[in-house]
Amino acid sequence: MNNLTDFVLYDSLNNKISDGKFTGSIISKCEDKIIFSDNINISNSNEISISQGLIVGFEEKNEKITAFSKKSDFIWKNLEETPLEYSVLIPENIIEQYNQEQFTDDFPFTISLLHTAGLYLNDSISHINHLDFFKEEILKNPVSLIENGIIMADRVVISEIGDAVFYDSIIVGRDDKDEIKVSYETFVNVDDKNVLYIIILGIEELKV
C-alpha cells in the first residue's frame, strides 16, 4: 500500500473532508455498499452529491437476498445524514495501470455475465457461495467488500482450493492506524474468510 492519503476526499472516521467538485475515478463506501462514480461534489456546507453513480451491493428482494448494481444520483444535505464512510479519488497513474493491464477481450475463456450476480456472500443469515461452481474459471468485472476495504478488479479466478484470486486490482482500505490507502496490485489472493462479499458486475448493466 502506498501513502496516497491526499486522494481521500471524505473520511468520516478521521473527520476529513475536502470541499470542491471532483471528477475522475471515485470509489465511495456507503455502509455495506460501494458506489463507483466519475464525480463527487462536496459543498462548503458539507452537502455531498454524486451524480449518475453506480451503487453495488446486496439487497433484500421478495424475501431473498440478491446482488444488484444500479445507476443513481445521491444527495446528502449534511454529514449527519450521510451514510458514506469514505470517498476516494483514485490517482490517474493507478487507473492507467489498471486500464493497461486489463485482460484483452480476445482471450476466449473469460466469462462475462450479462447481469450483475452475487458470487459470494459471507452472511450468517443468507450465505451465498458459488465459488465451487466457478472453480478454475475466469470471471470478468468482480467487485469485493473485504474486512478492511474494497477490491475492484478486472477479473477474478477461483483457485483449486476455492479461494478468489483477483487480477489487475485496485484496492482501497484502512491500515492499522485506520488511515485510508489506495494501491494497485497485479494479483491479490484473498482467503474467503476475510471476504464479506464478491459481486460480478453484469456488462449489460454497465451499459445502462
Partner: peptide, 26 residues
C-alpha cells in the same frame, strides 16, 4: 490488426470510462 483496431477505437473515444472505471463503449 488487433492493435490497430484498439488504437482506432480509443481515438474514437471508445475508451471513455463509465462510472469513472468501466470501459463500456457506446
Amino acid at each position: 490488426l488487433r492493435n490497430m483496431t484498439k488504437r482506432l477505437c480509443n481515438e474514437w473515444d471508445a475508451g471513455e470510462r463509465k462510472f469513472g472505471f468501466f470501459q463500456i463503449a457506446d
